[in-house]
Amino acid sequence: MSTHLSSPPSPAGRRTASWPQITQVEGLPIILVFLVLVGLFIVTAPEVFLHWPIYLSFLTTVPPMLVLAIGLTLVVAAGEIDLSFPSTLAFSGFLFSVCESSLGNPWLGLIAALAGGALIGLVNGLLVACIGVPSIIITIGTQFFWAGAASILSGGQSDALQELDGSAIYDVFAGNLFGFLPMQSLWAVGLAVFMWFILNRHRFGEHILFIGDNRQVARVAGINVMRETVKLFVLMGVLGGFAAVLLTVENLNYFSTQGQGYLLPALAGVFIGGTSVFGGTATIVGTFFGTFIIGMLEAGIVATGIAGFWVQAIEGIVFVAAVTLHLLMESPGKLRQLRALAGLGGRP
């Protein structure tokens, strides 16, 4: 618009030239952290980390958490949060187990689990989008409610599902492809790829990014913020229901507290991966590696011979280091935002 804008090409004209794009490879910092950690484990516990079984075991334990973290990545991208997914693991897991043990139909159980998750997401979404309750508050409440509902309905009992071993649904969700590759890892990786396309290449993903960036801008751009927010929470719920099925089928057991212990690791996977809590930007690749880091640390630390009670402290260090690394590597604006939040006098 101004005269300087139509001036002839200058050295500044190469502001977007090739080398900065290398650092813009999605999730690069966290991929490096991941490789460094694997390297450390190989050095400190070669007898474990130079052999396949440990990696195959990660591929069976991490997928439910990865499915949850992928959903959360989209929720956080929209500037929202969902803390109710552990209760989805319990509630949808219950629906699955009841369909299996009472009706003998695990496929109906799968549908019921997804539908139950959708219901949980729908309630969250309507409360957030239409009534305007902040998601961080309302999903604490719905977390209690659905976890409680699962306890009441199951009578707090666990439900052994041994009969599923070797059944078709087991083969599909927890079997081994070619006799070694865990099926749940294929589902999780496939889902990660698909959701990458949804977030980065689909209209819905773009709407989520704009909503997270600036709600008002999203509205004047013609995005139906309410409808997209409801859709987003329903999607999160359905993914929670799917994670519940993966978990329950793998364990061949349902217990009403099976969601406990997933809340912080799944969130940690998202934030270690580099998705901004401020919304508007998100990385599925980052979440992928962030979740594997979280899933790998515990087994890895124990394998190195360090006592188990070190696990959490080391996880904490990795978390803080990774999140700080992202801030330093990406936009300095983020750093300023944080400083301002912390009242350190950064420009807002």
Partner: peptide
Amino acid sequence: QEKSLGEKQPLWRNIFVGRQITNRFGFI
């Protein structure tokens, strides 16, 4: 008058947001 551009988004998304050029499955 107020902000009508998504600050953290690339320019091409800002031009087409709300009326993206997509295939029939909604992929941009």
